[in-house]
Computed example of a mutant assay.
Amino acid sequence: MKHKVKKAEGNVSTVKQFVLLGFSDLSNLQEFLFGVFAIIYIIIIIGNSLIIILTRLDPTLQKPMYFFLANFSLLEMSYVTVILPRMLVNLWTQDRSVSVLGCATQMCFFLMLAATECFLLAVMAYDRYVAICNPLHYPLVMNQKMCVQRAVSSWIIGIPVQIGKTATVFSLHFCDSNKINHFFCDVPPIIKLACGDTLVHEMSVYAVAMFFVVLPFMLILASYSKIICTILKLPAASGQAKAFSTCSSHLLVVVLFFGSATITYLRPKSYHSAGVDKLLSLFYTIVTPMFNPMIYSLRNKDVIAALRKFFLKK
């Protein structure tokens, strides 16, 4: 397959700002979209904040599993806050311009938080693996110090790589257009605007995605392979059902997040289209974080009990 190279016509001008096209093609639905995304943002903030409060206040939730869940909820709020407020401003004011620095900042934080999510989901899978496959060693392996170290590692592991990746992308020359056909500053739509040979940059996107998406997913897959084998060996059906119930919520989140992210970043460039990219990105950046609190609360008896106690006290 031939790699297309955009050539600059004349002098390459320095881009001072970008324009996020977002959903500008849906001109009659701007107010409706603003209302929908505003409600989604409120749901995400309230739902995840509630999980953090419950895991801090309820003694029954003082376990490694819920410590990681609180971290995950904080991550989800940070994740959508990088994207949604800017999108809401664009929809409300119809001013879609964003400075190069603002765009680079948004991309950098998005990439760092996305990397954190990948590895935090892997750590949560490992926690379930130890709890089910090695229950006698669980208090030793998942002690408070180790939990904190694993959580902190998940938060910081992507920082240097993603800062470097952002700097590399914005060192490109943009000679075709400054209009980003997306609702936030993501790597693929910005590379599309660059002139010259971008093959090396595109390959580096694949390499980074392989490390931050495929590697954690393989670790999760390995953990759940062991978990499923162990569960199937349990003698009682009730024990199997209980073990599956503790993992099903996390597994559902993994499928939702990694499924859409993998299709977005690892499918061939020839299959990319602005509409599909926006739809997939919308799914793993906004829709999935909205459903995560509901997935974890509605499918977890401990969280439901803690939620009931919390509101009864209030």
Rank of each mutant, 00 (worst) to 15 (best):
L140M: 08
L140K: 12
L140Q: 11
L140A: 13
L140V: 11
L140E: 13
V141H: 03
V141T: 14
V141K: 12
M142Q: 08
M142E: 08
N143F: 11
N143A: 11
N143G: 06
Q144N: 13
K145W: 14
K145R: 15
M146K: 15
M146I: 15
M146R: 15
M146T: 14
C147H: 02
C147S: 15
C147A: 12
V148S: 01
Q149T: 15
Q149M: 11
R150N: 05
R150P: 01
A151G: 05
A151N: 02
A151I: 05
V152D: 00
V152Y: 02
S153G: 13
S154C: 10
S154I: 00
S154H: 03
W155N: 03
W155D: 02
I156F: 12
I156N: 05
I156W: 08
I157N: 04
I157M: 08
G158L: 02
G158H: 00
G158C: 04
G158I: 04
I159Y: 02
V161S: 04
V161M: 13
V161I: 13
V161R: 01
Q162R: 07
I163L: 13
I163E: 02
G164Y: 09
G164R: 07
K165E: 12
K165W: 14
K165G: 02
A167E: 14
A167W: 14
T168P: 04
S171G: 06
L172M: 12
L172F: 12
L172G: 03
C175P: 01
D176L: 07
D176W: 06
S177W: 04
S177Q: 05
K179R: 15
K179S: 12
I180F: 09
I180Q: 01
H182G: 04
H182E: 14
F183S: 00
F184A: 02
F184S: 01
C185W: 00
C185V: 07
C185S: 12
D186W: 01
V187Y: 08
V187M: 09
V187P: 00
P188K: 09
P188V: 10
P188S: 08
I190V: 14
I190F: 01
I190L: 05
K192W: 02
L193M: 08
A194R: 04
A194L: 06
C195L: 07
G196P: 03
G196H: 10
G196E: 13
G196D: 08
D197F: 06
D197C: 10
T198D: 06
T198C: 10
T198W: 06
T198I: 03
L199F: 07
V200F: 11
V200R: 10
H201P: 00
E202H: 09
E202D: 13
M203I: 10
S204N: 13
S204E: 13
S204G: 07
Y206W: 11
Y206R: 12
A207D: 09
A207H: 08
A207Q: 11
A207G: 05
V208M: 14
V208T: 15
A209G: 14
M210G: 14
M210Q: 12
F211S: 10
F211Q: 11
F211V: 15
F212E: 11
F212L: 14
V213R: 09
V214M: 15
